[in-house]
Computed example of a mutant assay.
Amino acid sequence: MTTTRSGFTKLAAICIAILLGSVIWELGWPLDRAEHEWARLIAAVATFGHLTGVVGSYLRKEINRPRPRLLVFQIVSCLLIFALIAREQQEDNFMRFTELSRLVITAGLIAIPTLMSLTRIFEWLLRKQKHGRPLMAPAMQFVASLGIVILSGTGLLLLPNSTYPGITLSFTDALFTSTSAVCVTGLNVVDFANVFTPLGEMFVLALIQIGGFGIMTFAYFVAMVAGQGFSLRDRVLLTDLLDEGNLGSVVSF
């Protein structure tokens, strides 16, 4: 029987937030060897706490416990992070292939549960309907999520390691660049090649991909979760956009 306790779920959420902070610190700032050691230690402790939280919430059958497939993904990701951290300790230089691999796996460990949490937020908005109307209209959900992505991208572009040494990117330029990338307009006010490092360019490319995905499908996803449903015309359009051959299975896809 499902219990109402959420102690392990809260532990997993807190540790994933700490892990996100350690990744941003490690990627965004130029660190010396001692600071890299601290970043790895924080990542290891946060990963252990997150692993304890997700396993504990599943065993205690808490309400927000992860599904079996997500649980397996989180366990495997945490074990890989531990293995890569142990391997990093035996190498001399930092920012190596093993460290970059760990950061990529950590990003996936953070992103997948976060996306799952977004579906719970939409379900919560659906349950808060009043007189048949959702608490927040689907269009407002889309605009709000777009604003969150833009502000997050602005913060990432303002990190010291996102630009070359000696170059200070203003908040306005970072905001404009992030907005242009998410909205896929192609406009820019800075010279990308001379301003952004490969890390900063990677952030911009990620924002472009998120924006392109959102324009095609996110509005339909929100409409579905908000209880609006799909008309036949929507199904035909989604079939073309997603290159799905079966009209009947496009919604489940």
Rank of each mutant, 00 (worst) to 15 (best):
M1E: 13
L125F: 06
S152T: 15
G56A: 13
N246Y: 00
L103N: 02
V55S: 04
S22P: 07
D191H: 12
F97D: 10
L207V: 00
W29A: 11
S180F: 04
F94P: 00
I63Y: 12
G132K: 11
S231C: 04
E244G: 01
G200D: 04
K10Q: 13
V195T: 15
V23R: 01
T3W: 11
G245V: 02
G7A: 08
D191W: 02
T98L: 04
T163Y: 03
R133L: 07
R33F: 08
H131N: 15
F82E: 05
R69L: 15
V190I: 14
L51H: 04
M95D: 13
F176G: 00
T2A: 10
L125I: 02
G214L: 03
M216A: 12
K61T: 04
E26Y: 05
L242R: 10
G200A: 03
S162W: 01
Y58K: 04
E244V: 11
Q90H: 10
V54M: 06
A144K: 02
G132L: 11
G108R: 00
P66C: 10
L70E: 14
D240W: 06
N64I: 08
Q74V: 04
T163S: 10
A181E: 05
N194L: 09
Q209A: 14
F48R: 03
R87N: 02
G108K: 06
A12Q: 02
T168W: 06
I150K: 05
F8S: 07
D173M: 05
F221I: 08
T179Q: 06
S252N: 14
S249R: 12
L59Q: 09
R33H: 14
Q90M: 14
T239G: 10
F203T: 03
L151F: 13
L20V: 05
S77N: 06
R65I: 03
P66L: 05
P138T: 12
G245D: 05
L241C: 04
P165M: 13
S178E: 02
A181R: 06
I16K: 01
L80T: 09
V222T: 13
L237Y: 07
S101Y: 03
A46M: 05
L156S: 02
T106L: 07
F253N: 05
S249P: 00
Q209H: 09
L126P: 00
Q209F: 14
L126K: 14
N194W: 08
D243A: 01
V251E: 10
T185C: 08
F94S: 13
A226T: 07
M116Y: 15
H131L: 11
R233I: 09
L247N: 04
F94H: 12
I210Y: 00
P198V: 05
G7C: 00
L169Q: 08
D234Y: 00
A39G: 15
M95F: 13
N93W: 10
I112F: 15
V76F: 12
R60Y: 07
